[in-house]
């Protein structure tokens, strides 16, 4: 596992992160992220044996709510912070490839 990020890797991660970076940003972030990853690489030396990954601090499970309808936000509250809207819709630049979404 290499702890140094190439410019291409930084660009790839920036793309996944939806961050528009300049050439300078790519160089600077590449250097900083590399040094952090180098530090973080010490995790590789830990003998984790067969330890299960811990994703929760507390032994909680099966927290459920009853299927009861609660009020929605009024439409003006829904749209209050919207940077761009038409009628009661949020808007984005026209999406040409409707398949760009997920699955």
């Amino acid at each position: 596992m290499s702890e140094t990020l190439s410019a291409a890797q930084v660009e790839h991660v920036a793309r996944l992160s939806r961050l528009k970076l300049s050439e300078d940003d790519i160089t600077r972030y590449g250097r900083q992220l590399s040094s952090i990853l180098e530090y973080v690489a010490q995790l590789q030396e830990v003998d984790v044996g067969s330890k299960a990954p811990m994703s929760h601090p507390l032994p909680l499970h099966s927290v459920l709510r009853d299927d009861i309808v609660e009020p929605s936000l009024p439409i003006d509250a829904v749209l209050k912070n919207a940077p761009s809207k038409v009628g009661a819709f949020f808007t984005v630049p026209k999406v040409l490839d409707p398949s760009a979404g997920g699955g």
Binding site: V92, P93, A100
Partner: peptide, 19 residues
């Protein structure tokens, strides 16, 4: 920049809007 928060004025497509 879609439902709330800062939105660029520079975007012509969706990816650009996000990034």
């Amino acid at each position: 920049g879609v439902h709330y928060g800062h939105r660029t004025t520079q975007a012509s497509d969706l990816f650009e809007l996000y990034a």
